[in-house]
């Protein structure tokens, strides 16, 4: 049985438990019993007074569920993409932003905001520019270096720099009273704008992308041994690398369009997963996905509760990420990185 199927039930249960816990947390803490009573009533298992049901429906389904689902989708995408990137680039210090997807998406969103586009168009532009930035990076690598790993990294650096400078230009011309704060706020990441309809659409490509990456775990193991060895093990190295980079880019760009830029998840979560299940990607990728979901649920819980106003989640993940990274550093010398 594939590792991701074998681990599946435990990981899904863990994520479900984390989601229930996240539904309890907020400005108005809900006891778990209320949530379970509500879920039972919604499923038609038992009766509940209409007024109480409506109140709970509003709080749980309208207000909290979109954020919780968004946290799960964004967390698992970024963590899986991060683990996949670390494998492809044979470097445990790589994050999904390596090839410029975040820089591109940031430019796309900022451009949309400056052009006063409707929110959905801003998100679409963020997604498209994220994909475009990676295409530019990989294109440079293919043009000048046969798409080798080191050329891809350099291509990503160039592409990232290009889109970062474009972002600065857009920020410079943005209206400093309305548009600039909107851009800055978006760059800090937030799950506040997630709505159920949009999540219903995004769940399909993200689900497919994460699942496909998880099934490619063993092939990714071979890729981390270097091109010659992977080829001698029968792997179609170039096609595999492009496929994995494309899937990881797709799901990262989708998360950016959903929640802005949320850093550190893709870097730190795979490390924690590696401590738990070892470096074999067949187990590492699904574990990263589940832990990523849990990590972002926890970060969102903190961002909603520690202050009376919400703290942008990107700030929370960075703070937690830095602390977690320092703790993980102790393992570096033991060769776990």
């Amino acid at each position: 049985m594939p590792a991701w199927l074998r681990l599946g039930p435990a990981l899904l249960l863990g994520v479900a438990a984390a989601m229930l816990a996240a539904l309890c947390v907020g400005r108005y803490p809900l006891p778990l019993a209320d949530i379970l009573r509500f879920l039972g009533a919604a499923a038609g298992l038992w009766e509940m007074p209409t007024r109480e049901f409506d109140t709970l429906f509003n709080l749980i389904v309208r207000i909290r569920l979109p954020r919780v689902l968004a946290a799960v989708l964004v967390g698992m995408s970024l963590a899986t993409a991060g683990a996949a990137f670390q494998g492809v680039f044979r470097n445990p210090l790589v994050s999904p932003g390596l090839l410029g997807v975040l820089a591109g998406a940031a430019f796309g969103a900022a451009l949309g905001i400056v052009l006063d586009l409707p929110w959905a168009m801003v998100q679409l532009l963020a997604f498209l520019m994220g994909v475009a930035a990676v295409t530019v990076g990989v294109g440079i690598a293919t043009l000048f270096g046969n798409g080798s790993v080191i050329m891809m990294v350099l291509g990503g650096v160039i592409s990232g720099a290009l889109f970062t400078s474009l972002l600065s230009m857009v920020k410079y011309v943005a209206d400093p009273y309305n548009q600039l704060p909107a851009i800055v706020h978006w760059l800090m990441g937030s799950l506040a704008l997630a709505d159920l309809d949009q999540i219903g659409v995004l769940i399909i490509p993200i689900g497919i992308g994460v699942t496909l990456l998880c099934t490619l775990g063993r092939a990714l193991d071979a890729l981390t041994m270097g091109d010659d060895e992977a080829r001698a093990l029968g792997m179609p190295v170039q096609a595999l690398r492009i496929l994995i980079v494309a899937l990881a880019t797709l799901i990262s760009a989708l998360t950016v369009s959903l929640a802005g830029i949320i850093g550190w998840v893709g870097l730190i979560v795979p490390h924690i997963a590696r401590l738990l299940v070892g470096p074999g990607n067949a187990a590492l990728l699904p574990t990263s996905a589940a832990l990523g979901a849990g990590f972002l649920l926890a970060a969102d819980g903190i961002s909603r509760t520690v202050a009376t106003t919400e703290i942008p989640i990107g700030i929370v993940t960075e703070l937690i990420g830095v602390i977690a990274f320092v703790l993980v550093l102790g393992r570096v010398r033991k060769g776990w990185l």
């Binding site: 445990p92 063993r218 093990l233 792997m235 070892g278 470096p279 074999g280």
Partner: peptide, 21 residues
């Protein structure tokens, strides 16, 4: 770059027999 166990390293030899997925 990653601390695969010896069994995992040897297991990679089975990739050509079992295929990608």
């Amino acid at each position: 770059p990653f601390p695969y166990t010896v069994r995992q390293i040897v297991g990679m030899g089975r990739l050509p027999a079992s295929g990608l997925f």
